[in-house]
């Protein structure tokens, strides 16, 4: 079952304060990804992989084409949807996992990780316990759970972000280099989390720098340079 369908998507940036220069980044992109699939976006540096992922999330405005997302049994076009519809879709259907943690400075790690469960109506006690399990799995020791991650190392912050992102799956997950700069042990945990999500029926679309990781998670690939249909991995 397709979860996301991209048709004829183009993206250009107009830089008004730099002589109105126009950068054409993507042109005529088309692909589909389904439940239980992990589609890898690949292409050279500068090909527009991150731009495409941001378009799918509604973080960038689509210049042309449609980005259809299956939300609540309906197809909704992210390219034209109202802001509040996109917020709704992000709350329930579509999440974005980057390697960077962006939170209000003071909130404790355990609260950050249990947040998505609380937002879905899970009780506080169960949410905290599951958050603890997830943090342990990603090798964040309990002595750090009560602290805000602002003072953590880059790798620890990244793992807190992964924990928060994978604790409650959305039907579609967009992954922007989630394993970048992790050590091998933690990278393997993230690969496991991705494959578990996929097997439970999540549709994943991701960018991975590391070919070894791609081989362990991919079910299909889409090459941005040649902009051809995804083929089986």
């Amino acid at each position: 079952m397709d979860m996301i369908r991209v048709n004829g998507v183009s993206k250009s940036f107009t830089l008004h304060n730099q002589g109105a220069a126009t950068l054409q980044v993507l042109e005529g992109i088309a692909f589909a990804a389904g439940a239980g699939e992990c589609l890898i976006l690949q292409g050279e540096s500068g090909a527009g992989k991150s731009t495409l992922l941001r378009l799918l999330y509604g973080n960038y405005k689509c210049t042309r084409g449609e980005i259809l997302v299956r939300h609540d049994e309906q197809w909704i076009d992210i390219a034209t949807a109202q802001a509040r519809t996109i917020l709704e879709i992000r709350r329930f259907t579509l999440s974005y996992v980057s390697q960077f943690l962006r939170v209000i400075p003071r909130v404790s790690t355990i609260d950050i990780v249990s947040g998505p469960l609380l937002a879905r109506g899970v009780g506080a006690e169960i949410a905290a316990r599951r958050a603890g399990d997830m943090l342990s799995r990603l090798n964040i020791p309990p002595r750090l759970w009560g602290l805000a991650p602002a003072t953590f190392s880059g790798g620890e912050q990244q793992r807190v972000n992964i924990a928060r992102s994978f604790i409650a799956h959305t039907p579609i997950m967009l992954l922007d280099e989630p394993t970048a700069s992790l050590d091998a042990a933690n990278r393997d945990v993230v690969i496991e989390l991705i494959n578990e999500a996929r097997k439970s029926g999540v549709c994943l679309v991701g960018i991975f720098h590391d070919e070894a990781v791609r081989q362990m998670v991919a079910t299909a690939r889409f090459d941005i340079l040649t902009a051809k249909q995804p083929e089986a991995a």
Partner: peptide, 13 residues
């Protein structure tokens, strides 16, 4: 528009 879209992909000069 969406806060992150306006801040990350501003359209107006």
């Amino acid at each position: 528009g969406l806060t992150d879209q306006v801040l990350d992909d501003p359209q107006h000069a």
